[in-house]
């Protein structure tokens, strides 16, 4: 069991290493990269927006009674902005993308593998790793931070509405409080970690799909493993990120 885990980790590391070799080699599959950016970014947009909005609203409404006990409801925008920007919006976006994009990539490449489309690409003179993996991993690495930034904004708007359900906070006051609270040490690490989230979601989805076997059952397993492993890695990266920001005195 333990041996198999180490073998799997080694294979994922080798697969990832190949990405850094292939990404700098010509020819660049720019058209496919743009197609993937559109697919990954645009198609995940509604889900990310809805979830971020609800998270912002719910967090605000649930935090309000506790702050009210201390008479500190005026601190509500400050508190939710730090929670949402530093942790909730990026991690929720990454988990949604792991579920939607990671499983999609795992299933798509897995079915291409079992129906010999990847071999056909090889025979047709197109490097399948470059065409399928490099483009998808680059697209997730670029698109997930953009989605996370959007989720930050939408969740704060949800928070604004949450503040105004049982209280009154003007639009200007709400944003002034947020921008007075937030510093670069809050925003920058949270954006930087989303690049890593995007990278692992792409690479794990591709790895699982590329190594799919055993027909349609294998495709299902690939999609499932892509979600499970990439979600777990998102949390591990989050854990590492908080340690690093702590060392750098950014917490």
């Amino acid at each position: 069991m333990l041996k198999n885990i180490f073998i799997e980790v080694g294979l994922i590391a080798r697969f990832t290493g190949r990405f850094f070799v292939e990404v700098f080699k010509p020819q660049f599959e720019f058209k496919e990269f743009l197609r993937q950016c559109f697919y990954i970014g645009n198609k995940s947009l509604p889900l990310v927006v809805i979830t971020a909005f609800i998270m912002g609203l719910v967090l605000t409404m649930q935090s309000r009674p506790t702050l009210l006990e201390f008479g500190a409801q005026a601190w509500l925008p400050k508190m939710i902005s730090v929670s949402l920007i530093r942790e909730i919006a990026p991690v929720i976006t990454a988990l949604i993308c792991a579920g939607k994009i990671g499983s999609g990539i795992g299933a798509e490449l897995g079915s291409m593998k079992v129906t010999e489309q990847i071999d056909a690409m090889d025979v047709s003179g197109t490097n399948p790793y470059k065409f399928l993996v490099v483009t998808r991993v680059m697209a997730t690495t670029l698109m997930i931070p953009l989605l996370a930034i959007l989720a930050d904004a939408v969740s704060l708007y949800g928070g604004y509405l949450g503040c105004n359900i049982k209280g009154v906070v003007s639009w200007d006051l709400f944003w002034n409080q947020i921008f007075d609270t937030l510093v670069f040490g809050d925003i920058l690490p949270s954006i930087i970690k989303t690049f890593f989230f995007g990278f692992v979601i792409g690479i794990i989805g591709c790895y699982q799909g590329f190594n799919s076997s055993k027909g349609t059952e294998g495709v299902g397993q690939s999609a499932n493993s892509a979600v499970v492993i990439s979600s777990l890695l998102v949390f591990i990266i989050d854990l590492l990120a908080v340690q690093i920001t702590d060392v750098l005195n950014l917490n």
Binding site: P26, T115, E116, D119, A120, M121, S124
Partner: peptide, 25 residues
């Protein structure tokens, strides 16, 4: 090479499938 499963690219039209071997730089 004619694959047993045909290995046509599902996400592409017939024209794009046929053009694929001509993509060689």
């Amino acid at each position: 090479f004619l694959f047993q499963s045909n290995a046509l690219y599902d996400s592409m039209t017939v024209r794009e499938n046929l053009e694929f071997p001509l993509r060689r730089h």
